[in-house]
Simulated assay, not measured.
Amino acid sequence: MLHVISQDLSSFNTLGLRSNASALVRYEHAGQLPALSQLAQTYKKVFVLGGGSNVVLAPDLSALVVKVESRGVRLVAESSDAWLVEAQAGENWHEFVGSCVDKGWLGLENLALIPGTVGAAPVQNIGAYGVELEQRIQSVTAWNLQECRLVEMNAEACRFSYRDSFFKHEPMGRWLITAVRFRLPKAWKAVLGYPDLRQHAILAAAGENATARQVFDAVCEIRRRKLPDPAVLGNAGSFFKNPVVSPARYEALHKAHEQLVAYPQDNGDYKLAAGWLIDQAGWKGRRMGPVGVHDRQALVLVNHGGATAQDIAQLAQTIRVDVAARFDVVLEQEPVAIA
Rank of each mutant, 00 (worst) to 15 (best):
E147S: 02
V215D: 00
R136Y: 13
P185S: 15
S62G: 03
L49P: 05
L108K: 13
Q280G: 07
N54Y: 12
G107Q: 11
M288F: 13
A89W: 11
D229W: 02
V232A: 04
N154M: 03
G104L: 04
A128V: 09
Q138P: 01
D279K: 12
S22Y: 11
I126L: 05
G305T: 05
F182A: 05
V46T: 15
L9E: 08
W83A: 03
G130L: 12
E132P: 01
R18Y: 04
V55P: 10
V65C: 10
L184D: 03
V261L: 15
A120S: 13
A112S: 15
V140Q: 02
G31V: 14
V48F: 04
Q199R: 09
G173W: 14
D266P: 03
L192Y: 10
G289F: 11
Q135K: 12
P290N: 02
A313C: 06
E152H: 02
N125I: 11
V321F: 12
W276G: 02
L184A: 11
K168S: 06
Q88C: 10
N242G: 05
Y162G: 13
S80K: 11
D322T: 04
D217K: 01
I202F: 03
R286M: 04
Q38F: 10
A324K: 06
V25Q: 09
T318R: 07
K241L: 14
P335Q: 05
M288P: 01
V97C: 12
N20V: 12
S53K: 00
K255E: 15
V140T: 06
A21H: 09
G292T: 01
Y129P: 05
F327I: 02
K189G: 07
A307G: 08
L301C: 07
W175H: 07
L9N: 12
A274W: 00
G173A: 06
V97R: 14
E251P: 02
P59I: 08
Q32H: 11
G130H: 13
E208Q: 11
L61S: 07
V97F: 11
Q146R: 10
H304N: 04
A307S: 12
E170V: 08
G173I: 15
P34Y: 13
F240Y: 12
P122N: 00
S19T: 06
A121F: 05
D266F: 11
Y129S: 07
C220G: 01
G292I: 07
S165V: 09
R326D: 00
I177T: 06
A30Y: 07
Q280D: 01
K186F: 14
A35V: 11
I222P: 03
N144R: 06
V118L: 14
